[in-house]
């Protein structure tokens, strides 16, 4: 298959199958994910939505043995090409995890981690400040940059992790249920942050919270498992349409069940 380059799409996924060892987790995924917008991935647990997300920066293969068929392109380049440099890919595709996972070092060192790994020359202080500012946490931490990141609250830690990702200037930010460990107020701040970041990069967020998907995203993908418990993409489209006029019965059941 020839990959057509479309500037408006961040990801193009074609006939993607995902296997953990011999167990298939995703079957025949085809989707375009638009750039400079927020795409939400919803679906019942075990439907493969996290697996899908982890295949977009190839972090899944760091955890266990996996096999992927088909093609996933990022801005026209196949990311499963054997020649792909994983560090380069992951630099361009940041990731925020379910539970905040700051490194056991200072706030400053957490943000400076990526630039240091890549040997970036220049004013590190300014880069740290701008990243923390973009992640809307600068004012809260500017006086204690040298203290341990583990002293921050859960919500602050999660925003710090976002700042840490932004410091290497990624094109895409993957978020794996970033608010599931946070309280409602902290959740709200992350959602505002997502809204603000949308103009600068492509955000793909997995969430189990329907309201959240409705509030933050422009596009939504609904994943579900088939009768053999293999995950598949059931429906995709504009968030508004998915939520208010779903075409597929399963989508409708899931959404109404969740809202009801």
């Amino acid at each position: 298959m020839s990959s057509t380059t479309t500037t408006s799409n961040a990801y193009q996924v074609r006939n993607m199958n995902f296997f953990y060892g011999t167990r298939q987790a995703l079957d025949g995924i085809n989707i375009d994910i638009p750039a400079q917008s927020v795409t939400a991935i919803i679906g019942p647990s075990g439907c493969g939505k996290s697996t899908f997300l982890k295949s977009l920066n190839r972090i899944a293969e760091a955890e266990t043995k996996v096999r992927i068929d088909g093609q996933i392109s990022l801005f026209g380049q196949n990311i499963y090409d054997p020649k792909v440099n994983l560090t380069q890919l992951r630099r361009r595709v940041g990731m925020v995890f379910q539970r905040p996972n700051p490194f056991p070092m200072s706030i400053y060192d957490n943000v400076a981690y990526g630039p240091r790994v890549f040997g970036t020359k220049g004013n590190l202080d300014a880069l740290v400040e701008s990243s923390l500012t973009k992640a809307a946490i600068w004012n809260e931490v500017k006086d204690k940059l040298r203290t341990s990141a583990q002293g921050l609250s859960g919500g602050q830690q999660q925003r710090l992790c976002i700042a840490r990702s932004l410091a290497v200037n990624p094109d895409v930010l993957l978020m794996d249920e970033p608010c599931s460990a946070l309280d409602p107020i902290a959740t709200l701040r992350i959602e505002e942050l997502i809204e603000n970041l949308r103009t600068q990069l492509t955000i793909i967020i997995v969430t189990h919270n329907m309201q959240q998907a409705g509030r933050v995203s422009q596009n939504t993908l609904f994943f579900n498992t088939d009768e053999s418990r293999i995950g598949q993409l059931v429906e995709s489209g504009l968030t508004k349409e998915i939520f208010f006029s779903p075409k597929d019965k399963r989508t409708e059941d899931y959404i109404t069940g969740r809202f009801g």
Partner: peptide, 19 residues
């Protein structure tokens, strides 16, 4: 300073030192 956008090419190999 912002971290400069590196070349878009994902296949650009890892720097020799890091490899």
């Amino acid at each position: 300073m912002t971290m400069s956008k590196q070349s878009d090419d994902l296949t650009q190999p890892l720097e020799a030192g890091r490899t």
